[in-house]
Amino acid sequence: MQLKTKRANTMGPGRVNLMFMNSVVLVGVLLTAIPFIYMITASFRQQGELYSLPVTIMPREWHGHNYVKLFGDTNFVIWYGNTIFTAGLRTVLGVYFAALAGAAFAKYSFRFKRFFFFLVLATLTLPFQVLLVPLFLMMRDFGWVDTYWAVIVPGIVGAFNIFLMRQYIESVPDELMDAARIDGASEFGIFHRIIIPLVRPALGVVAILTFVNTWNDFLWPLIVLHDDTKYLLSIGIATMDGPYDVEIGAIMAASFLSTLPILIVFVLMQRQIIAGLTQGAIRG
């Protein structure tokens, strides 16, 4: 009997406690959401309103002219297209290559396997910034400055992606692969027709993470892309106040529109993404 009451105490918090806990979570959610809400409402305000008192989260009047200005006076649409193209291509190639490498580590035995895997882990610890100067000089000598090759190719096969793909591909049954071999399938055939379909959810997660990283990347594109029409969204939005003399409202509109697709994809796939990301960390 005593045991039971003890359990009841630890398992279910009292009603007052529960209300308190719920409100703490809600406050956390609100504090996180307010900057986003402010971004959206600011994009529908007139410039004067953002520089006047009292400061409010909701606009006094809703205006669409920031969006008109954004599409009319800046290269926003071009930057958007550039970013979709660059991030898309980098994602497709990068995920494919990472899956290949992951399959090699998960399903084959070969000489120097441990050494190669050590290389993958080593790249995880090397900070990218140390490579900036020589990489830029290389891009210059390759004639890749102001081309998307410079953004797409270096670091395209992410070490973390290889690591994730290896973990997922390990769960593909060996018997399935051996059966296909007996039926005369080539190793590439096995990769495309057995491994890829079985790890499709993981592939999706790795693809989304790669896409988001490329979409948001700033420092490296800033170094290799100098022509305004070649800009990606991050550089375009960061420098919008300069050449166009646009107002902060239009910058907020650009921020909102550039964040929207990422947020939508995330809302649709949040469970898989969080599971994929946290998986490595909880196992150590």
């Binding site: 979409w215 902060i248 907020m252 550039s258 990422i262």
Partner: peptide, 24 residues
């Protein structure tokens, strides 16, 4: 809702975050 909200800042571009906090 909390899971959604807590992940959102992380996937938002640092530039967008920078601009929002310039206002804040």
């Amino acid at each position: 809702l909390a899971r959604l909200a807590f992940f959102a800042p992380y996937i938002t571009s640092a530039i967008v975050v920078g601009w929002i906090f310039t206002l804040i």
